[in-house]
Computed example of a mutant assay.
Amino acid sequence: MSRFGEFFARGRSALLAGQATYDRPPAEGSRRWGAAAVLRPSGAVLDRLVELAGELRPVVGPGHWVHGPDALHVTLRSLEPYREDVTDRRVYGAALEEAMRGLPPVRVELRGVAGHHGGVLVWATPADETLATLQKRFAHALGEKGAFESWTRDIWYVSLVHFAAPVVRPEAIVGWCEERADLTVGVAELSRAEIVRAVHTGGGVRLVTLERAECGP
Rank of each mutant, 00 (worst) to 15 (best):
A14N: 04
G61Q: 03
V74P: 01
V205A: 13
A95D: 14
A132K: 05
E28M: 01
P81D: 00
R32L: 13
P58R: 02
A37R: 07
R10V: 08
W176R: 05
A20Q: 15
L16C: 01
S2C: 01
R83F: 02
P25W: 13
A36I: 04
E84Q: 10
L96P: 07
A114Q: 06
V185A: 09
T21R: 15
T75R: 03
H64E: 06
A165S: 15
A9W: 09
L207M: 15
G143T: 03
F163C: 04
G34P: 06
L190G: 08
G29F: 00
E6I: 12
A94E: 15
G119V: 06
T201V: 05
P105V: 09
L142T: 06
L39R: 08
V91Y: 11
A213M: 14
D47E: 15
T201I: 03
R111F: 09
R31D: 14
I173P: 00
V161D: 06
V50C: 04
G118M: 14
H162I: 03
V66N: 08
E189M: 03
V196D: 13
T125P: 05
F8N: 04
V108C: 06
T201D: 09
G143F: 01
V161A: 07
G11P: 03
R90L: 15
V50E: 06
A95W: 11
F163M: 03
L49G: 02
W176Y: 05
Y92E: 09
K145H: 14
A20I: 07
L79V: 05
H200W: 07
T125Q: 09
V158F: 08
G18V: 00
E97F: 04
S191R: 14
V60Y: 11
G54W: 07
R48W: 03
P81Q: 07
M1Q: 04
S150P: 00
G175Q: 07
G118A: 15
L190T: 08
Y157R: 10
Y157H: 15
A95N: 08
V113T: 00
R169S: 10
S30L: 09
S13P: 00
L52R: 00
A27C: 11
T133W: 02
P105W: 09
A94Q: 13
R169Q: 13
E144K: 06
W151C: 07
L76C: 00
T201Y: 10
T184F: 08
L210A: 14
H200R: 06
E55P: 10
A181Q: 13
A9R: 11
S42T: 11
A14V: 01
D70P: 01
T209S: 12
R83I: 05
R137C: 06
V113D: 05
P126L: 13
V59R: 05
A172P: 06
E189W: 03
G119F: 05
V45D: 10
L49M: 01
E171A: 14
P25K: 13
G54N: 14
G93W: 10
A114G: 11
E129K: 05
